[in-house]
Write a protein that binds this DNA or RNA. Structure first.
Lengths: 169, 169
DNA sequence: TATTGTTATACTCTATAACTATA
DNA sequence: TATAGTTATAGAGTATAACAATA
């Protein structure tokens, strides 16, 4: 990837570093989750989302929206988690079409068992390497990127290529 | 993931932002690669690595090392790419055990066809959102993290998370 | 024996489309 | 008709272990 057709060296370096660090951390985290709790990344995300929700309950659709993937993909994962006794599924009372997924005590327990290791990995790979100021700077920058991404990718304004020179914020 | 057991809010925010931005960009890039050239992310990475190498040639092992995954995984991908006429595989002359993977003209051509779109996505999602200073700052920080990760994760400092975990599934 | 790579196999994940049922 | 979710299915990706060939 020497010639990226219009990304200068610095831009390319930023992109590649982001990509690599992201995937390395993800990899390390997934290994830990698997080893400590037999959980895959997606499964952990579902359990964590539920743990974060009011009564450990969320509708399938809300879960799917928060986590990116398709309905059917979530159905598959939810079925796995249900088989393992980590969540239950039941129709919502107000709307019989909706399914409410609920974290079971056992699910919460497993999450508690896995969390320390999870935190340890993140701490060791990311937090410990940076001083608080850098960490805050990075978070700020990345949040800006994330917000922009979520605000609908300006598909309309695609043909933009002014290599930098923009002061967002 | 409200309670992360020992990550403060800022640390957690940094981690989550990194994770989310990384996966959103990866997703967008993979979609573009698939649409513009019928390539998966891993396949593109292999082709790009080859394009970067001296004569468009690399040994299987060197490819695998550079790209993370297992030998067998690379064998699979290399076979796909060979079927598509994008690379060739031939034993090395100095060491009959080694296989040299070579980018074909057609492979290089496809790469050329896919690159503009690839760059455009990165530009739109990442570069355009940040001013040059932020970009440089982020690259610097992430490079520090990456270097540390590569310098063998101080496995010594990881008190193994025994905790009899091992059951869900 | 160690290294390079392939094969066989098995499993996870994801997506699309067709389908059911509620609203 | 529109929405929520499931099912059937199909395919891609990855890893592990056993294997063959070369060094």
């Amino acid at each position: 990837m020497t010639d990226a057709s219009s990304l200068d060296a610095g831009q390319l370096a930023a992109y590649l570093a982001l990509k690599e660090v992201g995937s390395l951390i993800e990899h390390a985290v997934e290994q830990q989750l698997r080893a400590d709790g037999g959980l895959s990344g997606p499964q952990f995300q579902i359990l964590a989302s539920l743990a974060d929700a009011p009564r450990g309950r969320l509708r399938m659709t809300d879960l799917a929206d928060g986590l990116v993937y398709s309905r059917s993909g979530l159905t598959y994962q939810a079925a796995q988690l249900e088989k393992a006794g980590l969540v239950t599924r039941a129709p919502a009372e107000e709307d019989e079409r909706s399914i409410i997924v609920t974290l079971t005590p056992r699910g919460r327990e497993l999450l508690g068992k896995v969390m320390p290791g999870h935190v340890e990995v993140v701490q060791r790979l990311l937090i410990d390497v940076l001083d608080p100021a850098d960490l805050a700077t990075m978070a700020g920058i990345l949040n800006r990127v994330r917000d922009r991404m979520r605000t609908g990718p300006p598909r309309s304004a695609a043909p933009r290529r002014s290599a930098g020179a923009r002061k967002p914020r």
